[in-house]
Design a protein around this nucleic acid. Sequence first.
DNA 1: CTGAAAGCGCTTACAG
DNA 2: CTGAAAGCGCTTACAG
Lengths: 299, 299
Amino acid sequence: MEETGFTPNAHALHLRGKPTATIGVCVENFLTPTAVHKLSVLQDLLHAKDYTALIEVHRPGSSRRVVQHFLSLRVDGVVFIGHFDPQDLGPRLAELSRHGVPHVVVDNPGLKKTNLVTLDRVRAMEQVMEHLFGLGHRRFGLLGISGPFQTVVDRLRGVENALKRKGLGIAAAVSLDDRHARHEHFSYGSTLARAFLELKRRPTAYLAINDETAVGALLEFQSQGLRVPQDVSVVGFNNQNVCLMTRPLLSSVDQQIEKTMEATAALILNQAGHALPATPVVRMIEPNLVLRGSTGPVR
Amino acid sequence: MEETGFTPNAHALHLRGKPTATIGVCVENFLTPTAVHKLSVLQDLLHAKDYTALIEVHRPGSSRRVVQHFLSLRVDGVVFIGHFDPQDLGPRLAELSRHGVPHVVVDNPGLKKTNLVTLDRVRAMEQVMEHLFGLGHRRFGLLGISGPFQTVVDRLRGVENALKRKGLGIAAAVSLDDRHARHEHFSYGSTLARAFLELKRRPTAYLAINDETAVGALLEFQSQGLRVPQDVSVVGFNNQNVCLMTRPLLSSVDQQIEKTMEATAALILNQAGHALPATPVVRMIEPNLVLRGSTGPVR
DNA sequence: CTGAAAGCGCTTACAG
DNA sequence: CTGAAAGCGCTTACAG
């Protein structure tokens, strides 16, 4: 067999009745480092169970075709990773349900009646705010935390929850996002930092949409003569490598990608080959605030 | 059809004789930003021609299984992206040839008798050196450009070629790599920069293995009071987003990933469904040196 | 012009 | 215990 180089035809095997042992993975258009990390961890976990990941990058309007493709290949389950338009995703999930194909949505919170694994972003921001409250901060700058995504809505809610509990209004968290165009994260962070420097009553602590934006702001603050964390505190989000590129190192929220994808893999493989469950499973992942040197007591 | 939600079984179609319209893509273990970029562009190009990319991340020792999987799924071609051990890759390519499956190796130069698309790294370093010569530099520091990969060998050859042409010996390019352990790119760059600062006759221009290393070195130089580019020049490699994170912005070599993957897609789709060509195709991609502010005339 | 059969590559269950 | 047949889901070529 080895000698003759014979390789069985997987399509014939499947036609005969063997499951394809394939999980379709649809990942959002914009391949962010976090999305790539999730993808990579998931593929590892699926491989360990002798499953194949069929990866499709989602492009606007392509979701129907992607799901059709998954169905035509008779995948045993489908995982969606990242931001999707709910208007677009809903019908796709319904289609998968109709075909009895289990599916899990990762980090696209706010969906109903669907298996969901997602970072608890409300909790993440509450953690950050509580940490900053402990350092005496009472006035906050939000860097790029705005937009239509549910993930952003959740994060703003976390900020608001924390402020309320402390007896502060939402006005204590200032955003200048709407005044500036968002091109590339890093320079957007710099731009926003410059804008904040022009305010009379400037926030003492800054929370960024992601690490790149935080780094851009931090370096801009420093190049304008402010010291971090003595004069301003900065916190990123995602805990990427770029956090190690500044002095002081950037504190950031870790998404716990390994835990997220372990829950995802367990969920989809558990449901593969069985009837769809009546009540979908929702797993919230606890974030992990990684403190480095970029936050300190308010002066 | 639409109404009943019928979806043809792709396996049955293929068994019937229809090509799978699938290209297996094997990407190196370590998912670098450049590898991800290549992957993403390639998938786009294949999709545009109604092909599917079956992506497998290569793990040490898994290449046999990956290729078996591709063969069992009767892919129409295979693309390898990134660093692979030639001892490991050789037998795999032979196996694909035996099965008549076309294959292309991307950015793993030095292989014989195989379709190859690769950045001309010799040329890339010659370009950088010529630029630095023009600014008056005669003494160079190499940051992390060492190791067993053919890509690195090529880059060192480019440096050497340029030095020779200028009548200089290889001693004009100093490397301190062997004295320091390589953990994470960014801090490795910082460490090397500090080591160079202790030298009596310090190089005036630095060439890094990649952008992260260059950024680490540049920020370290600056925090030690040196001005960039007045006191030292720094050049990165890959032209990633991180180049925009320093002041001055980092000059870097662009790999021309779009061109590379266009050539790759054209090559593999051209050979799909035909007999393997007697003489393999080799396409060298011309690099593009992107000048920003991090290089300047020697003092 | 319509409809049943052959066959793609396999394995399992059955007949000899 | 060995070997031929049935059947998975399709399409194409052929018979009625």
